[in-house]
Computed example of a mutant assay.
Amino acid sequence: MTMIRLTIALGLTALTAACGKKAETPVAAETNQAAPAAAMSGDMGNMAMAPAATAPIKAKGHGKVTAIDKTAGTVTLDHGPIPEAKWPAMTMTFKAAPAVTGAAKVGEKVDFDVTLTGSAGEVTAIQKQP
């Protein structure tokens, strides 16, 4: 019983001594930068990475106009997959020029051209499907 009390007392003492201390990040001597965390190791071969390219991607899509906000300069489309962006079918709001927002009507099925920069897109042309 005395051994258990001694173990608990030593444990509490160690915890109390550690309170308020910040964990230190190991520093690599040669570069003066923090060493990589151990949590970063492992197999990341199946992890999808965002493209590093900064150039915009031109893509085409098909969908239905669900909303138009001429004041904000946006059009919301319920569109099918866009393979160039590796996007599944979804409903998404895009930036759009006044010529685009003026040419579209809510409820219309449309074909559209979109310029993708990162994860954002801008509809550059829109045509009503026949």
Rank of each mutant, 00 (worst) to 15 (best):
P81H: 02
K86D: 15
H79A: 04
F94P: 03
G73K: 07
I68Y: 06
D69C: 11
M92C: 05
W87P: 14
M90I: 04
K70F: 14
T76K: 02
K95T: 09
F94K: 02
M92E: 02
A89K: 01
T91R: 08
A89S: 03
M92P: 04
K95S: 10
D78N: 09
A85M: 15
A85R: 14
E84S: 05
V75A: 03
T74A: 08
M90G: 04
K86A: 15
K70P: 09
D69A: 12
M90D: 01
F94L: 02
L77R: 01
T71A: 13
A85V: 13
L77F: 01
A89D: 01
F94M: 00
A96V: 08
K86C: 14
T74P: 10
A97W: 14
T93I: 00
V75N: 05
G80E: 03
F94E: 02
D69W: 14
G73R: 00
A85C: 09
A97V: 14
D78K: 15
A72S: 11
K86M: 15
T74E: 10
P88Y: 06
T76P: 01
D78Q: 12
F94T: 05
A72C: 10
V75S: 03
P98F: 11
P83S: 05
H79E: 12
L77P: 13
I82P: 09
M90A: 02
M92L: 06
A97C: 11
W87I: 02
T74Q: 13
I68M: 09
T93F: 08
A96H: 06
E84A: 06
D78E: 11
D78F: 07
P81S: 04
K86W: 12
A85D: 08
T76M: 00
A97L: 13
A96I: 07
W87T: 00
D78P: 14
A96R: 05
K70E: 12
P88I: 11
G73N: 07
H79P: 14
T93Y: 11
M92D: 02
M92R: 04
T74R: 10
A96L: 08
E84D: 11
E84K: 07
P88H: 09
V75D: 03
I68T: 07
K70S: 10
T74K: 13
K86N: 15
K86T: 15
T74Y: 09
K95W: 15
T91M: 06
P88R: 15
A97N: 12
A96F: 06
A97T: 12
F94R: 01
T71V: 15
T74D: 04
A67I: 12
A67L: 07
P88D: 13
T74W: 11
T71P: 08
T91E: 06
H79K: 10
A72E: 12
I68H: 10
M92S: 03
P98H: 09
W87R: 08
T76F: 01
T93K: 12
W87H: 02
A85E: 05
E84G: 05
L77N: 03
D69R: 14
P83H: 00
A96W: 08
D78C: 03
P81V: 00
A97Q: 14
F94C: 00
K70W: 12
G80V: 00
A85S: 11
P83Q: 05
A97I: 14
K95Q: 11
A85K: 11
T91P: 08
D69K: 12
K95E: 10
K95R: 13
T93A: 14
I82Y: 03
A96G: 05
K86V: 15
M90P: 04
T76C: 02
T76I: 05
V75F: 03
G73S: 04
P81E: 00
